[in-house]
Simulated scan of single mutants.
Amino acid sequence: MFFASDNSGPVHPEVLDLMAQSNTGFAMAYGADPMMDEVRTRLRDVFEAPEASIHLVATGTAANSLALATLCQPYETVFCSPVAHIHEDECNAPEFYTGGAKLTLVAGGDKMTPEALSASIAGEGVRGVHGPQRGPVSITQVTERGSVYTLNELRDLCSVAKGYDLPVHLDGARFANAMVVLGCTPAEMTWKAGVDAVSFGGTKNGLMGVEAVIFFDPAHAWEFELRRKRGAHLFSKHRYLSAQMAGYLRDDLWIRSARAANANAARLADGLRAKGAEFLHHPDANMIFVAFPRFRHQALFAKGAMYNLWGGKLEGDPDEMLACRLVCDWSISHDQIDAFLDMI
């Protein structure tokens, strides 16, 4: 009954099998291995972008920060949601890797609106040399509150950015989960909507630790290569990153895993509704934010359930409503979900 994070689940056996197969003999280092050629070809096919530059790193923080650094000058600002991962959960890594670019938080919730984004962009770059210049827009898909932007919403945000001649970055740590919800293609959710660069996540969806950074304009490739090396994120034994991503893409494992995670979350959400839980956000993908009385949380934790409380402590008034975040990955069984619901 582990619902703390989709980072906490196991590596998919199909990925481990391919990593084991790759662990024989010798392979060229630093991304020159044959498996990386397969990854580049496959991702270009998947995204319908034959000229795209493809790069692998081991963490989502590295993917987001290095991608933004490539798109952003130190004297610029990145526009993002107040709850974006790059703002709340990356210890100022984007600011560090960009050489000091700041983040400008777009007013509102987890999903930016075109009106709020336009107002934020218009409010910067107006003080000449004294203020930050306008820089990239970063969109999180799935958002940090479990919501999914529709294709029209993505297009509208990108249209605002393009109106100011600004690049757009998509933080796709849960890219596959969002795509499954929308029933669209990767191209439709990225460059066809106006996205310039995407952090294509794998770690939260069954990989050991690898994310792909994709630039649809290959002119960014060399700068990213230099920034990745300078930032200490170029693996020498790169074949183990390549093998993970290759296994992820073969036989559409990335889509199968996301569908399983989303289905698990839907089963859990249905059960929570039946139990009378209060939903803080509509659970579009595989993250659920709900509240129920503290005494129920206390009972669940006492019986070994693992998840994150959201804005409160386990100790206190037993009848007070207390929020939590529950996340499902591909591996959680229906038995575990049902046992958790039975305890509630």
Results as ranks from 00 to 15, higher is better:
R145W: 02
E144V: 09
G128F: 10
V46I: 15
Q73W: 03
M35D: 12
Q141S: 09
T140C: 11
L68A: 01
E95I: 12
G125K: 01
L68F: 02
A122C: 07
V39E: 11
I139Q: 02
A27T: 10
L43I: 12
A58E: 13
T77F: 03
I86L: 14
V126H: 14
R155M: 06
G163L: 05
V142M: 02
R155S: 09
M35H: 03
P34M: 06
R127M: 15
A32N: 12
G128V: 08
A29Y: 12
P34T: 06
Y30P: 07
L71K: 02
G109S: 11
D89P: 00
M112W: 00
A29K: 13
A122W: 05
Y149V: 02
M35S: 09
L105A: 12
D37V: 15
Y149P: 00
A69N: 06
V142Y: 00
G60K: 08
C91Y: 05
H85I: 08
V126C: 15
R134N: 08
L103H: 03
G146L: 08
A116D: 13
E90A: 07
M28E: 07
G31D: 11
L157P: 04
K162F: 00
G99D: 09
Y30I: 09
H130G: 06
I121V: 15
F79W: 14
A161V: 02
A63K: 04
L117A: 06
S81H: 03
M28C: 03
N64Y: 06
V126D: 14
A29T: 13
A32K: 10
I121G: 05
V129Q: 12
T77G: 04
D33R: 14
R145N: 14
Q141N: 13
E51T: 15
G125S: 02
M36N: 12
A29H: 13
Y75N: 07
G100T: 08
A49S: 15
G163T: 01
Y75P: 00
P94H: 02
M35V: 13
V148Q: 02
N152P: 00
P50M: 11
S147P: 00
G109N: 09
V160A: 07
H55R: 06
E124C: 13
E95W: 04
A119K: 10
L66P: 01
E115G: 04
G25R: 05
P132A: 14
L157F: 14
S159T: 15
E144T: 15
P50G: 09
N92V: 05
A93T: 10
S81K: 02
T24E: 04
G131L: 13
C158W: 02
N92H: 08
K102L: 14
A32T: 07
G108Q: 03
S81G: 03
P50N: 11
L56T: 06
K162R: 13
E38D: 10
R40S: 03
E115K: 09
V46Q: 13
F79Q: 14
C158D: 15
T143L: 01
R145L: 14
S53Y: 11
V39R: 10
Q73P: 01
S138E: 14
T150V: 01
A49Y: 12
R134Y: 04
A62N: 10
G128T: 06
A161G: 04
A107F: 06
E144M: 14
Y164K: 14
G31P: 09
A27H: 11
V148R: 00
